[in-house]
Simulated assay, not measured.
Amino acid sequence: MRLKQLTSSNQTLSNEPLKITDEQLQNELNFHLVEKMFIKLREEKLISQEEFNKISKLNRQKFTPLLGPLMCDKP
Rank of each mutant, 00 (worst) to 15 (best):
M1L: 10
M1D: 14
R2Y: 08
R2C: 08
L3W: 15
L3Q: 14
L3K: 15
K4W: 12
Q5Y: 08
Q5W: 02
L6M: 12
L6S: 06
T7E: 13
S8E: 14
S8C: 05
S8Y: 06
S9V: 06
N10D: 15
N10Y: 06
N10G: 07
Q11T: 03
Q11S: 15
Q11F: 08
T12W: 03
T12A: 04
S14E: 13
S14A: 10
N15Q: 08
P17H: 12
P17K: 11
L18A: 09
L18N: 08
L18W: 09
L18G: 06
K19D: 06
I20Y: 08
I20G: 11
I20C: 10
I20K: 12
D22R: 14
L25K: 15
Q26I: 11
N27C: 09
E28M: 03
E28N: 04
E28R: 01
E28P: 02
H32T: 08
H32V: 07
L33I: 05
L33N: 08
V34E: 05
V34G: 00
E35Y: 04
M37G: 02
I39Y: 04
I39P: 00
I39H: 02
K40D: 04
K40Q: 10
L41K: 13
L41F: 02
L41V: 02
L41G: 01
L41R: 07
R42Q: 09
R42W: 00
E43W: 02
E43G: 09
E43I: 05
E44F: 03
E44Y: 02
K45H: 10
K45S: 14
K45G: 02
L46E: 13
I47T: 05
I47A: 03
S48P: 00
S48K: 01
E50L: 06
E51F: 00
E51G: 01
E51Q: 09
F52G: 03
F52A: 04
N53V: 07
N53C: 04
K54E: 05
K54D: 06
I55C: 01
I55S: 03
K57N: 05
L58T: 04
L58K: 11
R60W: 02
R60E: 07
R60L: 13
R60G: 00
Q61G: 02
Q61E: 13
K62Y: 07
F63T: 01
F63E: 05
F63D: 01
T64C: 12
T64N: 15
T64M: 14
T64W: 03
T64G: 04
T64L: 14
P65V: 04
P65K: 09
P65T: 09
L66R: 08
L67I: 09
G68C: 12
G68W: 01
P69I: 10
P69H: 12
P69D: 10
L70T: 11
L70A: 15
M71H: 07
M71S: 05
M71C: 11
C72E: 13
C72P: 00
C72I: 14
D73F: 13
D73K: 15
D73H: 12
K74W: 06
P75H: 07
P75R: 13
